[in-house]
Deep mutational scan, measured.
Amino acid sequence: NQASVVANQLIPINTALTLVMMRSEVVTPVGIPAEDIPRLVSMQVSRAVPLGTTLMPDMVKGYA
């Protein structure tokens, strides 16, 4: 089972991601792979992401 990136806190719209905002977790459906966490740092979210939400490619500007 592949771990995905999950929000560790509420991430407001247009916030630049930092390591403390993200954790890896095995979830369904699968989201952005956990190994991409270093690449996500400083990228902005395109919408508010609630705590515990799996990050999907369309939620991060410039990821897809």
Rank of each mutant, 00 (worst) to 15 (best):
N1Q: 15
N1H: 11
N1E: 15
Q2I: 12
Q2E: 15
Q2M: 08
Q2Y: 14
Q2S: 14
A3T: 11
S4G: 05
S4F: 03
S4C: 05
V5S: 03
V6F: 02
A7S: 15
A7P: 01
N8M: 10
Q9E: 11
Q9H: 08
I11W: 01
I11Y: 01
I11F: 02
P12A: 11
P12E: 14
I13L: 11
I13Y: 07
N14F: 09
N14H: 09
T15K: 05
T15G: 05
A16Q: 12
A16N: 08
L17E: 01
L17S: 00
L17D: 01
T18H: 04
L19C: 06
L19H: 13
V20Y: 11
V20D: 13
M22D: 01
M22N: 00
R23W: 03
S24Q: 10
S24V: 10
E25N: 12
V26Y: 11
V26G: 04
V26M: 06
T28W: 04
V30F: 10
G31N: 01
I32T: 00
P33Y: 13
P33Q: 07
P33H: 14
A34Y: 06
A34S: 13
A34F: 07
A34T: 12
A34R: 04
D36H: 14
D36R: 07
R39Q: 09
R39E: 09
L40I: 05
M43R: 08
Q44R: 11
Q44F: 13
V45S: 10
V45R: 00
S46P: 03
S46C: 06
R47N: 15
R47E: 15
A48M: 13
A48Y: 09
P50H: 14
P50L: 13
P50I: 08
P50M: 15
L51K: 14
L51G: 13
L51S: 15
L51N: 14
T54M: 03
T54W: 02
T54E: 01
M56K: 13
D58F: 14
D58K: 09
D58N: 15
M59F: 08
M59Y: 08
V60T: 01
K61G: 06
G62M: 08
Y63A: 03
Y63V: 03
A64C: 15
